[in-house]
Amino acid sequence: DLSLRDPSEIERWASELGGVSLAPGHVRLPRGSAVERLPGFEEGAWWVQDLAASIPARLLGAGEGRRVLDLCAAPGGKTLQLAAAGWQVTSLDKSVKRLDRLVENLDRTGLTAEVVAADALKWEPSRQYDAILLDAPCTATGTCRRHPDVLHRIGPRQIAEMADLQAALLARATGWLAPGGVLVFATCSLEPEEGEAQAPPVALLPLPIGAGEAPAGLEPTAEGWLRTHPGLLAEVGGLDGFFVARWKVGHLTT
Protein backbone atom coordinates (compact mmCIF):
# COMPACT_ATOMS: atom_id res chain seq x y z
CA ASP A 1 0.00 0.00 0.00
CA LEU A 2 1.19 3.49 -0.87
CA SER A 3 0.01 6.83 0.51
CA LEU A 4 0.36 9.69 -1.98
CA ARG A 5 1.84 13.08 -1.13
CA ASP A 6 -0.68 14.62 -3.54
CA PRO A 7 -4.01 12.72 -3.37
CA SER A 8 -5.15 14.30 -6.63
CA GLU A 9 -2.61 12.16 -8.51
CA ILE A 10 -4.31 8.81 -7.86
CA GLU A 11 -5.04 8.11 -11.52
CA ARG A 12 -1.49 8.92 -12.55
CA TRP A 13 0.23 6.69 -10.01
CA ALA A 14 -2.28 3.84 -10.17
CA SER A 15 -1.74 3.71 -13.94
CA GLU A 16 2.03 4.19 -13.87
CA LEU A 17 2.62 1.67 -11.08
CA GLY A 18 0.01 -0.87 -12.16
CA GLY A 19 -1.99 -0.61 -8.94
CA VAL A 20 -5.54 0.07 -7.76
CA SER A 21 -6.90 2.69 -5.39
CA LEU A 22 -9.03 1.66 -2.39
CA ALA A 23 -9.30 5.12 -0.79
CA PRO A 24 -8.47 8.76 -1.51
CA GLY A 25 -4.71 9.24 -1.82
CA HIS A 26 -4.05 5.48 -1.79
CA VAL A 27 -2.66 2.97 -4.31
CA ARG A 28 -2.27 -0.77 -3.73
CA LEU A 29 0.39 -2.59 -5.75
CA PRO A 30 0.79 -6.28 -6.52
CA ARG A 31 2.92 -8.17 -4.00
CA GLY A 32 6.63 -8.40 -4.67
CA SER A 33 7.23 -4.85 -5.83
CA ALA A 34 10.72 -3.50 -5.08
CA VAL A 35 9.55 -0.08 -3.94
CA GLU A 36 12.91 1.71 -4.07
CA ARG A 37 13.08 1.09 -7.83
CA LEU A 38 9.56 2.23 -8.63
CA PRO A 39 8.75 5.54 -10.34
CA GLY A 40 8.00 8.25 -7.81
CA PHE A 41 10.09 6.85 -4.96
CA GLU A 42 13.14 9.10 -5.29
CA GLU A 43 11.03 12.19 -5.90
CA GLY A 44 9.01 11.44 -2.75
CA ALA A 45 5.63 11.22 -4.48
CA TRP A 46 4.50 8.46 -2.10
CA TRP A 47 5.50 6.30 0.86
CA VAL A 48 4.68 2.74 1.93
CA GLN A 49 1.85 2.53 4.48
CA ASP A 50 -0.77 -0.15 5.07
CA LEU A 51 -4.26 1.09 4.25
CA ALA A 52 -5.47 0.45 7.81
CA ALA A 53 -2.51 2.38 9.22
CA SER A 54 -3.48 5.40 7.13
CA ILE A 55 -6.97 5.66 8.66
CA PRO A 56 -6.11 7.45 11.96
CA ALA A 57 -4.54 10.48 10.25
CA ARG A 58 -7.37 10.59 7.71
CA LEU A 59 -9.79 11.16 10.61
CA LEU A 60 -8.19 14.52 11.42
CA GLY A 61 -8.90 15.93 7.95
CA ALA A 62 -7.28 19.05 6.53
CA GLY A 63 -4.91 20.88 8.85
CA GLU A 64 -5.28 24.40 7.45
CA GLY A 65 -2.18 25.47 9.37
CA ARG A 66 -3.33 24.14 12.75
CA ARG A 67 -0.95 22.37 15.15
CA VAL A 68 -0.97 18.60 15.61
CA LEU A 69 1.15 16.35 17.82
CA ASP A 70 1.98 12.92 16.39
CA LEU A 71 2.85 10.84 19.47
CA CYS A 72 4.95 7.68 19.06
CA ALA A 73 5.42 8.93 15.51
CA ALA A 74 8.31 6.91 14.07
CA PRO A 75 8.85 5.67 11.40
CA GLY A 76 6.62 8.49 10.22
CA GLY A 77 3.84 7.45 7.86
CA LYS A 78 1.22 9.40 9.80
CA THR A 79 3.51 12.42 10.17
CA LEU A 80 3.85 12.51 6.37
CA GLN A 81 0.08 12.25 5.96
CA LEU A 82 -0.56 15.09 8.39
CA ALA A 83 2.12 17.33 6.88
CA ALA A 84 0.74 16.70 3.38
CA ALA A 85 -2.74 17.60 4.67
CA GLY A 86 -1.57 21.03 5.81
CA TRP A 87 -0.97 20.49 9.52
CA GLN A 88 1.93 21.99 11.46
CA VAL A 89 3.27 18.72 12.81
CA THR A 90 5.31 17.96 15.91
CA SER A 91 6.53 14.36 15.70
CA LEU A 92 7.62 12.78 18.97
CA ASP A 93 9.20 9.38 19.56
CA LYS A 94 11.74 8.08 22.06
CA SER A 95 13.61 5.96 19.49
CA VAL A 96 16.33 8.05 17.86
CA LYS A 97 17.04 5.28 15.35
CA ARG A 98 13.43 5.15 14.21
CA LEU A 99 13.29 8.93 14.07
CA ASP A 100 16.24 8.88 11.67
CA ARG A 101 14.03 7.00 9.24
CA LEU A 102 11.26 9.56 9.76
CA VAL A 103 13.67 12.39 8.93
CA GLU A 104 14.84 10.53 5.81
CA ASN A 105 11.24 10.23 4.63
CA LEU A 106 10.60 13.93 5.31
CA ASP A 107 13.67 14.80 3.24
CA ARG A 108 12.62 12.48 0.43
CA THR A 109 9.06 13.82 0.24
CA GLY A 110 9.92 17.48 0.81
CA LEU A 111 7.46 17.64 3.71
CA THR A 112 8.25 19.33 7.02
CA ALA A 113 7.71 18.57 10.70
CA GLU A 114 9.29 19.43 14.03
CA VAL A 115 10.98 16.22 15.19
CA VAL A 116 11.43 15.59 18.92
CA ALA A 117 13.30 12.68 20.49
CA ALA A 118 11.76 12.19 23.94
CA ASP A 119 9.78 9.84 26.15
CA ALA A 120 6.13 10.92 26.04
CA LEU A 121 5.69 9.82 29.67
CA LYS A 122 8.29 12.42 30.77
CA TRP A 123 8.18 15.11 28.07
CA GLU A 124 6.24 18.34 28.57
CA PRO A 125 5.16 20.45 25.58
CA SER A 126 5.59 24.22 25.44
CA ARG A 127 2.16 24.68 23.84
CA GLN A 128 -1.23 23.05 23.46
CA TYR A 129 -2.28 21.36 20.25
CA ASP A 130 -5.39 21.53 18.09
CA ALA A 131 -5.15 17.77 17.54
CA ILE A 132 -3.17 14.81 18.82
CA LEU A 133 -2.69 11.49 17.07
CA LEU A 134 -1.61 8.70 19.41
CA ASP A 135 -0.75 5.52 17.53
CA ALA A 136 0.22 3.83 20.77
CA PRO A 137 2.78 1.08 21.34
CA CYS A 138 1.02 -2.29 21.31
CA THR A 139 1.50 -6.02 20.82
CA ALA A 140 1.05 -5.54 17.04
CA THR A 141 -1.11 -8.66 16.69
CA GLY A 142 -2.97 -6.83 13.94
CA THR A 143 0.05 -7.27 11.67
CA CYS A 144 -0.34 -11.08 11.67
CA ARG A 145 -1.32 -11.00 7.98
CA ARG A 146 2.27 -9.96 7.22
CA HIS A 147 3.99 -11.29 10.38
CA PRO A 148 2.15 -14.45 11.49
CA ASP A 149 4.80 -15.24 14.10
CA VAL A 150 3.51 -12.39 16.26
CA LEU A 151 0.58 -14.53 17.38
CA HIS A 152 2.99 -17.03 18.92
CA ARG A 153 5.09 -14.42 20.75
CA ILE A 154 2.33 -12.56 22.58
CA GLY A 155 0.64 -13.61 25.82
CA PRO A 156 -1.51 -12.10 28.61
CA ARG A 157 1.44 -10.45 30.35
CA GLN A 158 2.54 -8.51 27.26
CA ILE A 159 -1.05 -7.49 26.51
CA ALA A 160 -1.56 -6.17 30.05
CA GLU A 161 1.73 -4.25 29.98
CA MET A 162 0.85 -2.58 26.69
CA ALA A 163 -2.67 -1.72 27.87
CA ASP A 164 -1.25 0.00 30.98
CA LEU A 165 1.21 1.98 28.86
CA GLN A 166 -1.54 3.06 26.46
CA ALA A 167 -3.72 4.27 29.33
CA ALA A 168 -0.83 6.31 30.73
CA LEU A 169 -0.12 7.89 27.34
CA LEU A 170 -3.80 8.72 26.84
CA ALA A 171 -3.98 10.40 30.24
CA ARG A 172 -0.98 12.62 29.45
CA ALA A 173 -2.08 13.47 25.92
CA THR A 174 -5.47 14.66 27.12
CA GLY A 175 -3.91 17.55 29.01
CA TRP A 176 -2.03 18.78 25.95
CA LEU A 177 -5.12 19.54 23.86
CA ALA A 178 -6.30 23.08 23.23
CA PRO A 179 -9.97 23.97 23.76
CA GLY A 180 -12.00 22.18 21.11
CA GLY A 181 -9.06 19.91 20.32
CA VAL A 182 -9.40 16.40 18.88
CA LEU A 183 -7.56 13.23 19.93
CA VAL A 184 -7.34 10.16 17.70
CA PHE A 185 -6.22 6.95 19.43
CA ALA A 186 -5.10 3.90 17.47
CA THR A 187 -3.35 0.57 17.95
CA CYS A 188 -2.39 -2.12 15.42
CA SER A 189 -3.64 -4.80 17.82
CA LEU A 190 -6.49 -7.31 17.68
CA GLU A 191 -6.71 -7.44 21.49
CA PRO A 192 -9.76 -5.72 23.08
CA GLU A 193 -7.63 -4.74 26.07
CA GLU A 194 -5.59 -2.56 23.70
CA GLY A 195 -8.62 -1.09 21.98
CA GLU A 196 -12.24 -1.27 23.04
CA ALA A 197 -11.37 -1.60 26.75
CA GLN A 198 -9.42 1.65 26.80
CA ALA A 199 -11.78 4.04 28.56
CA PRO A 200 -12.33 7.47 27.01
CA PRO A 201 -9.98 9.95 28.66
CA VAL A 202 -11.45 12.15 31.37
CA ALA A 203 -12.72 15.51 30.04
CA LEU A 204 -13.02 14.24 26.47
CA LEU A 205 -16.25 13.54 24.64
CA PRO A 206 -16.81 10.93 21.90
CA LEU A 207 -16.42 12.16 18.34
CA PRO A 208 -17.88 9.20 16.44
CA ILE A 209 -16.35 8.09 13.17
CA GLY A 210 -18.84 8.41 10.33
CA ALA A 211 -19.35 5.75 7.66
CA GLY A 212 -18.16 8.13 4.95
CA GLU A 213 -14.81 8.65 6.70
CA ALA A 214 -13.64 5.06 6.32
CA PRO A 215 -12.37 3.40 3.12
CA ALA A 216 -15.08 1.63 1.12
CA GLY A 217 -16.02 -1.71 2.66
CA LEU A 218 -15.25 -0.66 6.25
CA GLU A 219 -18.00 0.30 8.67
CA PRO A 220 -17.67 1.99 12.08
CA THR A 221 -19.10 0.22 15.13
CA ALA A 222 -22.27 1.36 16.90
CA GLU A 223 -20.02 3.27 19.33
CA GLY A 224 -18.43 5.22 16.47
CA TRP A 225 -15.12 3.35 16.64
CA LEU A 226 -13.41 1.56 13.78
CA ARG A 227 -12.17 -2.02 14.11
CA THR A 228 -10.34 -3.65 11.21
CA HIS A 229 -8.93 -7.17 10.95
CA PRO A 230 -6.97 -9.12 8.33
CA GLY A 231 -10.12 -10.79 6.97
CA LEU A 232 -11.64 -7.53 5.80
CA LEU A 233 -11.26 -6.59 2.13
CA ALA A 234 -9.89 -10.10 1.55
CA GLU A 235 -10.93 -9.99 -2.11
CA VAL A 236 -8.38 -7.22 -2.72
CA GLY A 237 -5.61 -8.47 -0.42
CA GLY A 238 -6.85 -7.71 3.10
CA LEU A 239 -5.44 -5.19 5.54
CA ASP A 240 -3.90 -5.01 9.00
CA GLY A 241 -5.91 -5.19 12.19
CA PHE A 242 -6.43 -1.80 13.84
CA PHE A 243 -8.56 -0.18 16.50
CA VAL A 244 -9.28 3.54 16.08
CA ALA A 245 -11.30 5.88 18.29
CA ARG A 246 -11.71 9.65 18.28
CA TRP A 247 -12.54 12.09 21.07
CA LYS A 248 -12.73 15.87 21.49
CA VAL A 249 -12.35 18.37 24.30
CA GLY A 250 -15.82 19.03 25.67
CA HIS A 251 -17.28 22.33 26.78
CA LEU A 252 -18.36 22.57 30.40
CA THR A 253 -22.03 23.40 30.91
CA THR A 254 -23.69 25.04 33.89
Rank of each mutant, 00 (worst) to 15 (best):
S3G: 08
S8D: 09
I10L: 10
E11R: 14
E11Q: 14
S15W: 01
V20G: 02
G25L: 06
V27N: 09
E36F: 13
L38T: 11
L38V: 07
P39V: 02
F41P: 14
V48H: 05
A53W: 04
S54L: 03
R58K: 15
E64M: 04
C72S: 05
G76R: 05
G77Y: 06
T79M: 06
T79Q: 01
L82R: 03
A83G: 02
G86R: 09
V89N: 01
S91Y: 03
K94E: 06
R98V: 04
D100Y: 07
D100A: 12
L102Y: 02
D107F: 15
D107G: 09
R108D: 04
T109R: 10
G110F: 11
L111S: 00
D119R: 06
K122A: 08
W123L: 00
S126K: 15
R127K: 05
T139L: 01
T143P: 09
C144E: 08
C144V: 14
H152W: 15
I154Q: 10
P156G: 12
E161R: 12
L165N: 01
L165T: 07
A171R: 13
A171P: 01
A173F: 02
T174Q: 12
G175D: 07
W176Q: 11
P179S: 08
L183P: 03
F185L: 11
P192E: 00
P192A: 03
G195K: 11
G195I: 09
A199L: 14
A203W: 09
P206R: 14
L207R: 15
P208G: 12
A214W: 14
A214Y: 09
P215V: 08
L218H: 08
E223T: 09
W225P: 13
W225S: 02
T228P: 04
H229P: 11
H229T: 13
G231D: 13
V236D: 03
G237W: 06
G237H: 11
G241Y: 03
W247S: 13
K248M: 13
G250N: 02
